[in-house]
Amino acid sequence: MGEAVGSSGSAAAIGSSNVGFQLLKKHGWKEGTGLGISEQGRLEPVQAYVKNNKRGLGAEKKRKTPKPIDHPDSEGKNHEEQVPLKKTKALSKRMRKMQAREKHLQEREFERAFFREFWPDNV
């Protein structure tokens, strides 16, 4: 049973020398029947293919690139001058992180100054 199934060449049947074929036979499977208790399962093996992208399994379509958003206040500006929305979000996130770090450092400096004022020998 080493010939291809169907004229489209979709899936080749498993040969009788295949390890999987031997295991199925050993567990009571009969050639030409489906898998499962009621033999309702698939008749052909699952078609394997090489996946060479970083998208998840089953993802077939490429993501659409977002269209630039026309803001009402940017009528006179060129599209090249506008910063993309994603870049703006990343930039603002970085700025918030930097501001939080700066605030933390200021609080620590305040605590040090407070301790220096009351316990100058310990600092």
Rank of each mutant, 00 (worst) to 15 (best):
A59H: 11
V83W: 03
E39Q: 15
Q40P: 04
T88K: 14
G76A: 06
S74P: 00
S74T: 06
I37D: 04
P66K: 05
A59C: 12
L85I: 12
K64D: 05
D73W: 06
I37Q: 10
Q40R: 07
E44G: 05
Q82T: 10
N52T: 00
E81T: 15
L43D: 09
H71A: 04
E60Q: 07
L43I: 10
G36S: 06
N52C: 00
I69C: 05
Q40L: 08
E39F: 02
G36K: 06
P66T: 01
K86D: 14
R42G: 14
P66M: 04
T65L: 06
K67I: 02
S38P: 00
E44D: 11
E44S: 13
K86P: 05
K87I: 14
N78L: 13
V83T: 13
G58V: 03
K54A: 00
R63E: 08
K54L: 02
K62M: 10
L43K: 15
N78I: 05
A48M: 13
P66G: 03
K51T: 01
K64E: 09
L43R: 13
V83Y: 03
K77R: 15
T88A: 14
R63W: 02
E81G: 09
T88E: 08
D70P: 08
A48H: 08
K67P: 06
K61S: 13
K67M: 08
K64I: 08
S38K: 13
E44K: 15
K86Y: 03
I37Y: 01
L35F: 07
K77L: 15
N52Q: 07
T65I: 10
P72D: 01
L57Y: 05
S38Q: 11
E44T: 14
H79N: 11
P68Y: 00
A59L: 09
K61I: 09
P84G: 06
D70R: 12
K61P: 02
A48R: 14
E39R: 15
V46S: 06
E39I: 01
I69N: 10
G41S: 05
Q47A: 13
G76V: 03
G58N: 12
G56F: 01
K61N: 11
Y49S: 08
P84F: 01
Q82F: 05
H71Q: 07
G76S: 08
D70T: 12
E60L: 09
K62W: 06
L57S: 11
V50F: 05
